[in-house]
């Protein structure tokens, strides 16, 4: 049972990352289409600038948990590496603990504010109107899953500080 849940969870992180890549490609395509149409005097795709702006948030927050899993977020590790092994482990555990708490609080509040916005039904008016809750929903998804990724490392007792960047 746990194994299935774990697989589903990993699958989710991966699927969101694929969506993040797709949104970058969609943004590229929209710019190409919009500029071409403008050049040919066919007007402009009204929705494109808004969709592209949101694609940035979308790809960033949906890609962030995946990058966390690959431990690719920029991290300065040179100072903790000077510590003896026990100290290094303690520092890593502290950093992961802080990260989990921060991310889960942010995820929780993003979800609450998003829910509130959903009930109020307001919109972010750009070249097209986008329901306000969407941005909060994306933030909530990203923060919560980044938090659970940190939690996973704690449960697996992988406290070694590690990032794409050792400093």
């Amino acid at each position: 049972m746990m194994a299935i849940l774990g697989k589903l969870y990993s699958g989710l992180i991966h699927v969101l990352a694929v969506l993040a890549v797709i949104s970058i490609l969609v943004a590229t395509g929209l710019i190409l289409g919009d500029v071409t149409m403008r050049y040919l005097g066919l007007g402009s795709i009204r929705a494109s600038s808004t969709l592209i702006e949101y694609a940035l948030l979308f790809s960033t927050m949906l890609g962030a948990p995946w990058l966390m899993r690959r431990r690719g977020h920029i991290t300065v590790t040179s100072l903790v590496e000077q510590l003896p092994p026990a100290g290094r482990k303690a520092a890593g555990a502290l950093a992961l603990g802080i990260s989990t708490v921060t991310l889960l609080i942010l995820g929780w509040r993003s979800a609450m504010v998003g829910y509130d916005k959903f009930l109020r039904g307001g919109a972010d008016i750009r070249s097209i109107a986008v329901p306000e809750w969407i941005a909060y929903g994306i933030l909530a998804t990203g923060f919560v899953l980044m938090g659970t990724e940190c939690l996973r490392l704690i449960l697996q007792r992988r406290f070694e500080p590690h990032g794409s960047v050792a400093a």
């Binding site: 977020h73 991290t75 300065v76 100072l79 502290l94 990032g163």
Partner: peptide, 28 residues
Amino acid sequence: FLMALGTPVVIAFLTVNLIGAVVFMGGL
């Protein structure tokens, strides 16, 4: 401090933001 501790840079900023928001802007 948080960066030196080996917290990813983005989370170091987010954590301080969280504390700062509570201290300077007030609560939830």
